[in-house]
Design a protein around this nucleic acid. Sequence first.
DNA 1: AATTGTGAACCTCTTCACAGCT
DNA 2: AGCTGTGAAGAGGTTCACAATT
Lengths: 223, 223
Amino acid sequence: MTFIDRPLVGENKISDATVRRLSLYYRSLKYAYDRGMRTISSQELADMNNLTAAQVRKDLSFFGAFGRRGLGYYVADLQRNIARIIGINKTWNVALVGAGNIGRALLDYDQFRQQGFLIKVLFDNDPTKIGKTFQGLEVKDFGNVAEEIKQNKIKIAIIAVPAQFAQSVVDRLIGCKVRAVLNFAPITLQVPENIWVRNENMAIEIEALSFALTNRRDPTRTI
Amino acid sequence: MTFIDRPLVGENKISDATVRRLSLYYRSLKYAYDRGMRTISSQELADMNNLTAAQVRKDLSFFGAFGRRGLGYYVADLQRNIARIIGINKTWNVALVGAGNIGRALLDYDQFRQQGFLIKVLFDNDPTKIGKTFQGLEVKDFGNVAEEIKQNKIKIAIIAVPAQFAQSVVDRLIGCKVRAVLNFAPITLQVPENIWVRNENMAIEIEALSFALTNRRDPTRTI
DNA sequence: AATTGTGAACCTCTTCACAGCT
DNA sequence: AGCTGTGAAGAGGTTCACAATT
């Protein structure tokens, strides 16, 4: 059955790791459906992501009882449910701050668009960039951030500016009622309790590989 | 004192979370040194990264006793030690597969270069791209991957190709003795036990923000 | 007086194992 | 017979609290 029988907020705490895995399951279900699978077992979902079947069932069980004993999960049904749980059953307008290399690459990043994250405004503070157009989107002056954010009803912003500017950018965004930030700057942002930040630090990931090759004997896998 | 008094391999298991935090400490130490700080306490390092002082001390203690009671840590000394632990006290030659938007953005990503990850070869399989030059690097035919990898003594590769090609690319790279992979394709790669993979999935991060805004009341911070 | 290094306590996440359902 | 859902057990990671050191 397709209902959520538990509260998702407050003291009922869904771990970060579980949330990340939901995204993996969502992709696996898409993949499975495209290949004609109409039901899928926790074991199959686990195998596709190098996890255990118990882990998959436990993760899903936090949100409801989506499966059928003896059968597994209906692929389309579970996919819809996960989309709703993650909040990608609708679109999100997103602001992107920073029209440098990373920013411009993200403008054309299919995975965002496909999951309903639509980059609606592109900001920079460089006068030589303001007014230019990338991927059909005009670079706006970050000085006018407030009105653009409001006009586009933006709750999620992506920060792709050099480290030294990132904190002031996030402060300004929060002042404009932005609630969540995907941060590509290699610095830990200080934000109030009610603001969400995820850091995308590619150097940290490659450094973890360096550490592994330098020190470790046996590999472990991570998301 | 600056020595490592514990084995870093085998049953002595350093958690992934600790390794990621080492990278954060390394950046914080750089920042602190640039601002003239010569010693730093675990509390200061913690504050810079929204962690606890105990966490910082515990992480460092896995590798040795680097601090001085009553004083803290010598900034330059600790930075050097962490660089050596992570394995970024030398340079790594890196191969980049995929000359699309993401790949080209990474070519010019300062954080890689600064930490000694040098992209030495750029591959693609698109005949319209092969032979072109981006950031001074000529796109090579992925068909010739073996010789280029060998010539450049490459152990770490970055995969920035569409999802459907990622598995065959990684299989091929492993055949060329590549030991570690930073994967930007939104798919779980299947690799042998002795190969290291880190996934950089930007859609997963933004989906975590969507989940938070959709479901959660109280923010938590993550790396 | 200040701060580290660390065993122990605590907490969180994962895995086990099996009852319960189809 | 097959597979889920879940309480309990187990493993792993974080925080506490304090002795040790400068």
